[in-house]
Simulated scan of single mutants.
Amino acid sequence: FIAGLGAFTALFAAVIAVTQRRFKAVLAYSTISQLGYMMMAVGVGAFSASMFHLMTHAFFKAMLFLCAGAVMHALHDETDITKMGGLYQKMPLTFAAMVIGVLAIAGIPPLSGFFSKDEILAAVMHASTPLYVMATVTSFLTAFYMARLLILAFLGENRSEHEAHEVDARMWLPMMALALLTIGSGLWGYFGGFSQWVHAGVPHQEAIDWTVAGTSTALALLAFAAAYQIYGRHSFRASMERKRFGLAYRIVYNKFYIDELYAHIRTRFVYGTAVVLRWIDEKIFDGTMYGLGGYALATSDLLTESANGQAQRYVVVFYTGVLILLCYALYWAVQVLAYWGGGAGR
């Protein structure tokens, strides 16, 4: 169940990332997809592979988000990648870091993502063929949407209204440091025995499964070619995707309308239920409490009238009560005598 949920998450988020236009939105859904990869590995028992991918992903995804921040800074907070283009000339260091990150997350050797993703794919292949197919398709989509992001933002013609510039050293130095970790962490993890170092279960892959690695690498290169064919060969226009892919594009671009469905449920069900519960709380529970309080106040007013401190009234009330009790006792005494007298006569 955990492996299936992870595989679905990885594939579902990757499909959504293919159509997103905001720079950080693509990376955010990519992160969700990669987390699905990690949970899929956990589900098939490949704990060390999951931890390995968690480490390598941390390096290249952090670098990619820093690249996004650098681009937004250079373009006055512009986030729409369809309004970018040609940044490789103006931002060469950011472009270099971006290329390294894209190649790493796509699983191109010898970058870190190649080694960690290979361990997951190999473990999943030996556990479940359907899950392996889903993971492989996700791998292809990952390479495709990251290549799309790179092409639209950094290659082609400039579609921005602002003049871009490279960021200063305070921004590109962290990117370069993460780029070095992206390049070296996979090699270190593979040859340095990452699974023994973290003690996260028994390692599933002592050596690279070249069937799996070769297939995923070939699919990544094919995805790069497809992205270039669609977005790189011709002058890109924002309406091109909508016209080419039609209804399917609109559904995926709107994230399968999950946000709208959630808003509808929240408005109609959650808020409606809250109104009903508020009425119950105010009219029934609060009303009951207020009624009991009013009853206590009314009773106290009545008792206050009788307890006014006049000794004469207390004596009258006392002897009236005594008289009532005596009359009651006399009544029962007469009844008892009549009962016994009648029995004695018979």
Rank of each mutant, 00 (worst) to 15 (best):
H53G: 03
H53K: 12
M55H: 12
H57Y: 11
A58C: 11
A58V: 09
F60C: 01
F60E: 01
K61A: 03
A62H: 00
M63V: 06
M63D: 09
L64I: 00
L64E: 03
L66T: 00
C67I: 12
C67A: 15
A68H: 01
A68G: 11
G69T: 05
M72G: 01
H73M: 14
A74R: 07
H76Y: 14
H76N: 15
H76G: 07
D77M: 09
E78H: 11
E78M: 11
E78S: 12
I81C: 01
T82N: 10
T82I: 03
T82E: 11
K83C: 06
K83M: 11
Q89H: 14
K90R: 15
M91Q: 02
P92D: 10
P92V: 07
P92L: 10
L93W: 08
T94V: 15
T94W: 04
F95R: 01
F95T: 10
A96M: 10
A96D: 03
A96G: 11
A97Q: 00
M98S: 15
G101E: 09
A104R: 02
A104Y: 02
I105F: 05
I105M: 13
G107W: 00
G107L: 04
I108P: 06
P110C: 06
L111T: 05
S112Q: 06
S112V: 07
S112N: 14
F114I: 09
F114R: 03
K117Y: 03
D118Q: 15
D118V: 13
D118K: 06
E119T: 13
E119R: 10
E119C: 07
I120T: 02
I120N: 08
L121V: 13
A122D: 07
A123F: 08
M125N: 14
A127E: 01
T129W: 14
P130Q: 05
P130F: 06
L131S: 11
Y132H: 14
Y132C: 13
